[in-house]
Design a protein around this nucleic acid. Structure first.
Length: 260
DNA sequence: ATTCTTGTTGAATG
DNA sequence: GCATTCAACAAGAA
């Protein structure tokens, strides 16, 4: 679920459902998801407040509270929001906010790898975490600058949140697929033109995914995303997709179109 | 049963 | 000191 486009969709979901309603109470069902905050503190700072606005940086989502603080959400690998009426039972409900009108905003997270915390502001959080700029809020010059002099493999670098925030395993594969670059290529071996193409592909792909509500089925058929498994024919040239390992994760690529 | 998985982190390594 | 990689984390799906 949760790379930049998916988090952006969660942001819009929160915008559409959860702003400007009094928070009656909140419940922590899985303390594992708390990040540097006690259950008491988190619940205490939510009760009686309301959410005023939302902000996103990379894969992190922030909900502004009426007392000026921010609630931070990170969705891990499997997290998402669910807004519902009444007291339905929802699977994997790790944290639940009940509004005064009886509606709920639940943080569902089957694998409990998501995180919830409190922050004084988005910018202090971002600098404390050492996150790079958001992938959709920087120009090509800054982008090239950030990758200048890097020795890492391009796929690792794209996924490195300290360089640029928001790109994960799936979208980094897509970016390299569309630019025809082998995932293990060293950044220092890429030409300026390659990096410019990577930047363009990044904007294009993330933007399109958001526009389509991250419904991967609706993405163009020549995207790797829906053909991302070993042996499946490349949607462009038909060669069997291969899998390799890049910094501990599976990288899928077309051996015919993405060469060293 | 085993292996896989869209995330981050802190320790280990170069 | 810096950049980079790796194992660990947890639980569900194939």
């Amino acid at each position: 679920m949760p790379e930049l486009p998916e988090v952006e969709i969660q942001k819009r979901y929160a915008d559409a459902t959860s702003l400007h309603q009094g928070i009656a109470t909140a419940e922590v069902h899985a303390p594992e998801v708390l990040d540097g905050v006690s259950e008491q503190t988190l619940v205490g700072s939510l009760e009686g407040e309301e959410f005023l606005s939302t902000a996103r940086h990379g894969k992190y989502l922030f909900l502004e509270l009426s007392d000026g603080k921010w609630t931070m959400f990170h969705f891990g690998m499997t997290g998402r929001f669910s807004y519902f009426k009444g007291s339905e039972d929802v699977d994997y409900d790790r944290f639940n906010i009940r509004f005064q009108d009886g509606h709920h905003l639940a943080f569902l997270c089957p694998r409990k790898l998501g995180k919830i915390g409190l922050a004084d502001s988005v910018s202090t959080f971002v600098s404390e975490k050492g996150l790079g700029p958001d992938a959709l809020s920087l120009g090509p010059d800054r982008f090239l600058q950030l990758f200048d002099g890097r020795r890492a493999m391009i796929k690792s670098a794209l996924m490195n949140q300290r360089i640029v925030a928001g790109i994960g395993n799936v979208y980094s594969d897509e970016i390299l697929f569309q630019t025809g670059i082998y995932p293990k290529t060293k950044v220092s071996d890429l030409r300026r033109k390659d990096m410019e193409e990577i930047y363009d592909a990044m904007e294009e792909i993330l933007g399109k995914a958001i526009a389509l509500q991250t419904d991967w089925q609706r993405l163009p058929d020549d995207y790797l995303i829906t053909h991302r498994s070993e042996g499946e024919p490349c949607p462009v040239c038909g060669a069997p997709i291969k899998r390799t390992r890049v910094s501990g994760r599976s990288a899928y690529y077309c051996p015919n179109r993405q060469k060293k």
